[in-house]
Amino acid sequence: MTRTSGTSGTTVRGTAPHEARVALELRELGRRYGRHWALRNATFRLPAGRVCGLVGPNGAGKTTMLEIIAGLRRPTRGEATVFGAPAGSAEARARVSFLPQEKPLFTRFSVADTLRMGRELNPGWDQALAEDFVRAGSVALDAKVGSLSGGQRTRIALAVALGKRPDLVLLDEPLAELDPLVRRQTVGALLAEVAERGITVLMSSHLVAELDTLCDYLLLVSRGGLRLAGDVDELISVHRLLSAHGDAVVDAPDGTPAGLEAHTVVQAQRERRQVSALVRPGGPVTDPWTAAAPTLEEVVLAYLEQGDADALISPNSHVPGTGTEVAA
């Protein structure tokens, strides 16, 4: 099924919008610092219960977006709602946990003090959950936070985030600066808790290759706005990675390889004697092209490199009444 919006020419594929609970909705969200827009026109919905990767180039406003959702910043324009409550409101704050990239903790506190902070400031605090999460990482409760390794500090920060028993967890580059082993342990522990409680997770990351194993939903933003949104399986399935021998393909006047007119070309490149293109097929693939299923990393990198590619927005990420509305 192919749908085209009447306002922006946005191509939309996939299943019809379902009535799943919406964890997060952004409408034309923007934040300006002085004369510089750090975030502009962010509009999407995130269904509840998903583990969503948020990717985009540096400066696309991912951190600003997460901070607005967490209630740490006010938007210059637009609005964000968390389970229907305005971001930053008491109701929204009680349901959201946010782990900033720098994972700030009081370095003079002991681990026990840090967990007590969570207990003192959150009515729904689950002390046992937080302690279990800490102990699973072999971190002593009486250890000073300032003496812990980066991985241990990440675990403490995650324990505070999860002990709050949030419905939505926002993670800003949670795996950066962790070695692979700690990263694996941390991810495993996080996903176990997320799965047990059905928490919605929105996680920004530059580690695109790892998002494939972490996330079942993906949002890709660029300075031009939202470019990709939807189930990871779905996003991959609607793309094909085409390749052909370079001598067999000539370039059209607009620079795109000939023979791809029937498809939506996200990105094409010529390397040595090989031509490859990531496309959204609009018909059968013909000679001399051969098709293969791309990886999530290949899809994401293609959209990141080709920032002006047509957006691909899953129906359940659409916000009714906005520019990316699905046309009938």
């Binding site: 901070e67 900033p100 720098e102 700030p104 009081f106 505070v160």
Partner: peptide
Amino acid sequence: SGTAKLVGVQS
């Protein structure tokens, strides 16, 4: 130190 954010995201 960034702990203003840590406190700011509690309930």
